[in-house]
Design a protein around this nucleic acid. Structure first.
Lengths: 134, 134
DNA sequence: TATAGAATTGTAATGATTACAAATTTATAA
DNA sequence: TTATAAATTTGTAATCATTACAATTCTATA
């Protein structure tokens, strides 16, 4: 928990208890949870937690580049920023898998035009499990 | 319009007039429009058009891999499927640019697990225009 | 020209997200 | 410590895109 306190502080985020708990949840659960899943998971530990706070806190983390938002067709999911990697989303079961491929950098020409802050590489298709169940 | 009729037919889509007009709009306007923009743009030509029809038709096109849905934070945008390319989304002005980079294929190991139907490569950051205006 | 099936439409329901003001907590300084 | 200001958290209501669904219109075929 101390680590988290320092990490948030280093990113100019005041480490309130609520924020630390939410961050810890994301750090320890790389399941790409939805807002609702985060809220449900922490409701016991933080009985007064409000869903608005989850939204606010995620926005704060995202603005400070600690957390990344993955915009899927069905819902938004959240992921702590770690090493560059891609995702595979199964269109049958909606599961989101990590894939160890680093997204390519912009080509030289585009680099002159755009300042990149984040890259997302997302594959769609059918996962192993769902291939078997037809 | 004949081309479109054939194209839809080849993809097992019955080429109704409404569908052809919607497809033509997407083919001729690579602006990554939202549902509402499509609806507004065609309201004059198709006075009885319903937004539900736009939704239905896009879903049909997507299921048949003629159109791709781009899930942005703020809204969904639509793009006819052409050559593989990436997108750059400006977080200041929300403009979505085409970038001529082909997304990488899955690595060998992942290929064994996943059957890929589509790939999306999306860069986020600040575009040229917005860099100038601070 | 009647009929079945498909496509389109309009309205209502849903559900995630945001706006916002009130309440609570935390930090600061007298 | 105690008062005050600032920041954080909360709860409710509003918003808005999307979906569900039943009714209507259109199209193809017998």
């Amino acid at each position: 928990m101390e680590n988290i306190q320092n990490l948030l502080s280093h990113h100019q985020i005041k480490p309130s208890y609520t924020r630390m708990v939410i961050f810890r949840y994301l750090r320890d659960n790389h399941t790409h949870p939805t807002v609702d899943e985060i809220y449900q998971a922490l409701a016991e530990e933080l009985p007064t937690l409000s869903k608005t706070t989850v939204y606010n806190t995620l926005k704060l983390f995202i603005d400070h580049h600690l957390v990344r938002e993955i915009n899927l067709k069905e819902q938004k999911r959240y992921d702590v920023v770690t090493t560059p990697h891609a995702h595979f989303k199964c269109d049958r079961c909606d599961e989101l898998y990590d894939v160890e491929i680093a997204p390519p950098s912009l080509d030289e020409k585009s680099s002159e035009l755009f300042v990149v802050r984040d890259v997302q590489l997302l594959y769609h298709g059918v996962c192993r499990k769902c291939q078997k169940t037809t």
